[in-house]
Design a binder for these strands. Structure first.
Length: 463
RNA sequence: UCCUCGAUAGCUCAACGGUAGAGCAACCGGCUGUUAACCGGUAGGUUGUAGGUUCGAAUCCUACUCGGGGAGCCA
């Protein structure tokens, strides 16, 4: 008999009822009495479990009734309507084959565990309801992202993970080397001689694929990257990880307005797609993790995102009458508390803040006509804060060169980036979306370590 | 990195200067429709680590390690 899946049983709408089937899965919990018992079986294909009923007619009744949580079994029997209220059908076992026993010290109980404890058993936590929901949603969301961009004419670019430029300007980098740490080769000045290293120069793990993506944007018009990113910042917060995934679209012949429209369309598409395709998971998270999750996500799809400039945001904050811990003044970057006020209290929905002072933004952002702000945009969302950061890029070679000089950047390191402005450079724009922050937003999980399978954070690279 | 709170049985917690306990899990037994099943029993501990104060420390003090929350950096 070929094995069916629990997903098929739920999708089959009665097709399997009163049929003999086989299901392979893992015991989530077991309740037994003298002559019969129940097993909650999860086969990994679906969020919900299948209730298996077994009785003393089984040849191995005694062994089955003593199965420890986590054990793997194969069950053959007839699918019937269930008299119990909590499940539409159940499997009357005729034969249960024990495929892999679990040990008595199995660390997962049917009781609720703290997320902190589950992080210490990250190799097993995917067997819990919450992590089963989170990681299926993560998978579906990743698919939705590719679907959105592919269906809108974007080309997916795999930008390098190893980068030779040490000046991408987005934070501390992890150095990559094959040199012997105990006795590295030295040059005549006594410094480490990286010309003897694997690549013949200093190399690091990427902190952003944006600059490389821009080069492909000038060939394909619309491109996106979706890959891992590494930051060696000593950030100890629920929102930062040393290894995370980013989505970075880049569009040609487009400015800030098109950029914001793209971000809004993309976000709405992903949210709708996830809501539509993982209803059981969303319902569970809404009940046990974040009671306002469904309302918030539905609201996202329906509402038009807010728009205001940085200057307007500063005015609103000044007039708000709120007591902020940090002062509000034009020219200073918005603090987390300021961003939260704007998106959560003043607007109550996602908001684009645009046109920041050039001093607090990156060198590649396009200078506005006022000469003191750049065409930048941050998307702030309730609960998570900054979800998207982007800008129109400076396509004018003279402006870009001048700005790099002002900031003391070595233009030789960026020769290929500057070439883009020389050979048919056009208006273009793009943004970066932190994938894990999106997953946090989609699931209601409040710690980034709980939306990454094996999170890497300062002092933690277990597994 | 800074501020702050915490660490006691496998898990979740209690004991707040005077003999370390409970629920769940595990193990043994009972129970004919359970669903965080229920009922009875057994076993389980150098109280995060290292010092100090005290007749006596899980409890008070110091340092360190790890974890939570907040901040910075950012996505």
């Amino acid at each position: 008999m070929e094995a069916a899946t629990v997903k098929e049983l739920y999708a089959g709408k009665g097709k399997y009822l009163h049929q003999r089937i086989q299901i392979n899965g893992w015991v989530r919990t077991l309740r037994s009495s003298k002559t019969f018992g129940f097993i909650e079986l999860n086969d990994g294909t679906f969020f919900s479990n299948l209730q298996v009923v077994f009785d003393e007619n089984l040849a191995n009744y005694k062994e089955v009734s003593k199965l420890i949580t986590g054990s793997a079994i194969k069950v053959a029997g007839q699918l019937t309507e269930s008299p119990g209220a909590k499940q539409p059908f159940e499997l009357k076992a005729e034969c249960i084959e024990i495929e892999g026993l679990s040990a008595p010290d199995y660390p997962l109980q049917k009781k609720r565990h703290t997320f902190e404890y589950l992080r210490t058993i990250a190799h097993l936590r995917s067997r819990t309801n919450t992590f089963s929901a989170v990681f299926r949603i993560r998978s579906v969301a990743a698919y939705a992202i590719h679907k959105f961009f592919q269906e809108n004419g974007f080309v997916h670019v795999h930008t390098p993970i190893i980068t030779g430029s040490d000046a991408e300007g987005a934070g501390e980098m992890f150095r990559l080397t094959t040199l012997d740490f105990d006795k590295p080769p030295r040059d005549e000045k006594g410094a480490v001689d990286f010309t003897k290293d694997f690549f013949g120069k200093e190399t690091n793990l990427t902190v952003s694929g944006q600059l490389e993506a821009e080069t492909y944007c000038m060939a394909f018009n619309k491109v996106y990257t979706f890959g891992p990113t590494f930051r060696a910042e000593n950030s100890n917060t629920p929102r930062h990880a040393a290894e995370f995934w980013m989505i970075e679209p880049e569009i040609a012949f487009a400015g800030l307005r098109e950029n914001m429209n793209l971000a809004e369309d993309m976000l709405k598409f992903i949210v709708s797609y996830v809501l539509e395709n993982t209803p059981a998971e969303m319902q569970f998270l809404n009940s046990f993790v974040d009671k306002s999750l469904l309302e918030r996500l539905t609201n996202i799809v329906k509402s038009d995102f807010g728009h205001l400039t940085y200057s307007q945001a500063v005015e609103i904050l000044k007039k708000s009458g709120e007591q902020f811990e940090y002062p509000v003044a034009w020219g200073i970057d918005l603090q987390t508390e300021h961003e939260r006020y704007i998106t959560e209290k003043h607007f109550g929905k996602p908001v684009f803040v645009t046109d920041y002072p050039k001093e607090i933004k990156a060198f590649y952002m396009r200078l506005n006509d006022d000469g003191r702000t750049v065409a930048a945009m941050d998307l702030l969302v309730p609960g998570v804060g900054e979800l998207v950061g982007g800008s129109q890029r400076e396509e004018r070679l003279d402006y870009l060169s001048k700005r790099m000089d002002e900031l003391g950047l070595n233009k030789e390191d960026y020769w290929w980036y500057l070439d883009l402005r020389k050979y048919g450079g056009v208006r273009h724009a793009g943004f970066g979306l932190g994938f894990e922050r999106l997953i946090m937003y989609l699931t209601g999980m409040t710690n980034i370590r709980d939306v990454i399978s094996f999170p890497r954070t300062p002092k933690n690279a277990e597994f």
